[in-house]
Write a protein that binds this DNA or RNA. Sequence first.
RNA 1: GCCGGCAUAGCUCAGCUGGUAGAGCAGCUGAUUUGUAAUCAGCAGGUCGUCGGUUCGAAUCCGACUGCCGGCUCCA
Length: 680
Amino acid sequence: MNEERKTPEVRAQMTDIERLRHSASHVLATAILKIWPEAQFAAGPPVENGFYYDVDLPHRISPDDFEKIEAEMKKEIKANHPFERMEVSRDEALALGKKGRLAALSERHEPSRYKLDIIENIPPDEKISLYRNGDFIDLCAGPHVMRTGNIGAFKLTNVASAYYKGDEKNPQLQRVYGTAFKTKKELDDYFAMLEEAKKRDHRKLGRELELFVFDDDVGPGLPMFLPRGAVIAEELEKLAKETEFAAGYQRVRTPHIARDKLYKKSGHLPYYAGSMFPPMILREEDDQEVARKIEREIAELERQRFELELNSGSAMFHAKEESGEESRSAEVQKIIDVSKFKHEIDAKIECKRKQLEELGDRYYLKAMNCPHHHKLFAAVPRSYRDLPLRLAEYGTDYRYEKSGELFGLMRVRSLQMNDAHVYCTPEQFEAEFNAVNEMYLKYFKLFGIDKYLMRFSTHDPSKLGQKFVDEPELWKQTEEMTRRVLKDSGIDYVEVPNEAAFYGPKIDVQVWSVIGREFSIATNQVDFAQPRNFDLRYKDRDNIDKIPICIHRAPLGTHERFIGFLIEHYAGNFPLWLSPEQVRILTIGDEPKLIEYARSILSELRAHQVRAEIDESSDKINGKVQRAEQMKVHTMFVIGKRDMEADAVSVRVHGKGNLGAKPGADAIAEILLSIKERRP
RNA sequence: GCCGGCAUAGCUCAGCUGGUAGAGCAGCUGAUUUGUAAUCAGCAGGUCGUCGGUUCGAAUCCGACUGCCGGCUCCA
């Protein structure tokens, strides 16, 4: 995380547990130095569930080393050294750093290079402080616990790599993670909680509950939904369609691919190309021939270049060998000529390659639905009377996420988005924007999502033209407008710079996966750039053509991520309306009459579109119950002779146990009502 | 993409320092006729991720690739 520097005031607000963990990270560094004195340390802060310290060390630390490191840490804790704070001048700090004394047990031959860099970045007016425990002295703003002995219980958890200051261009450091608590009990509870969390991991539940799969032959990041998972997607779609219809949206449908022209216009090609799959190139017969000709020409040029390369090699050789002044300068001249030729040939090759590229049509898989929707807006002349125009589609997009970024269903390469684009006038913006936010809140209430964070992402002026469309004025205006509406609506949000979409600021709703990763689950973006690029217009009251504002919104995010999130949120125990298998009928025995009765209940349920199954196997009732419970089937109708004779069913609900017998008609009516109302 | 780790049956996992594969569950077949978290028996199932190397011999050692996992970076 490369966030701006924490001010000393912010640091002073560290909670007790953060202070303890921060101290634990110093103890970790102390221990590592006892074993590897040459270790270079960068940063070692407390984090959400523990702490880490980034270390640069030739030895690759592995979990096998943890025991050894922990033993040293225990010694340091047992020694109960006080954490002493020392304020020093910038020069003193630099001098210590140069002697390798920072984040070290003693002076060393190598300077403390990361610490020196950190000192450079401390604002001139800020005090520089060091902390000492035992022999270990570290550049550190604090605060810490009083003594190392105050660190109650700790454990190293894993080691991973991290770029220095989170920048890909910087060296990779080893990040050793650990966690610490005041007491052993809290530590144990934490690990027990982690174990529980692992059971909710959507990747594990997805396999166990047969919701979705990945297949190597299909490709990484390309999930396929099994019937039980597809059901959830369809229920979400049903929900979205109903909600959006009521809110005045209209549904559209668009293809999954488009010509490069479209994405050049939208700005995706310059700004979003890195996230798009490479294009498919379509060439007609004529083009094919031209392409072959160009390819031959390129091959010929490359051959010439190769020969030149050989010549220049021998020229170089001669220039060294020949001792005569004149002949040497002649050879030098030759070298210069050769390199000039080479450049010329390279330029020609480059040019031919370009020609080759431009031959035929290039189609891209769509990474977003907006360009297609803009075309639909433009397809019909629009008047101010048509606005706001809300075009909705559960569109399928393909994004080339880097391999290391893929994560179960939460981060994939094919995704279906609860997408819609709202085209409106500036006067309508506020109402539309708020309506979208209200839709989020409505959904969150339905799903019982109460832990989330609204992030308002704005642009970074220094990245105009690279990451963000180069329209400084429009950025400013749009961000101000959005900020004002956000403030007026009273929604709690945090503002994060440099994370806007390339075409405008956005509001994301961030949630956390069971594993503690954060994800944007819903999004709402304001687009001032694309409507211009697409020359979208509507005829206003005053008979003048005007450009609409576009709001991109996806309250349910994508099926993939939302379902992944829901699996963890419900721990696989979906409410009835979402449950892949809503009712399973378990018969006690398989006498023909009983089976007949059970099947009549099944048909009745199915006639009402209830996802019901029947288990007619020869297992004992205990076995049938066990299997239904394991698959987290929402409701079980246990049907034996007794029930048949009373025209009843015995109802069992997953997680709630046996609820007793009930007239069949009543049980079915209750099921239908719960589904219809989408009860939690 | 980068750093590190891992890859044995559909799933969960055994298989010691190289001597050519094993369990439970799931599946299939049969028996059992059941009252709320596993009835019994039998059968079948694997080119040990792929390719290459070392070796008389490789699931086991080495290398490359692919995929997954933990992070970093990036995102719905």
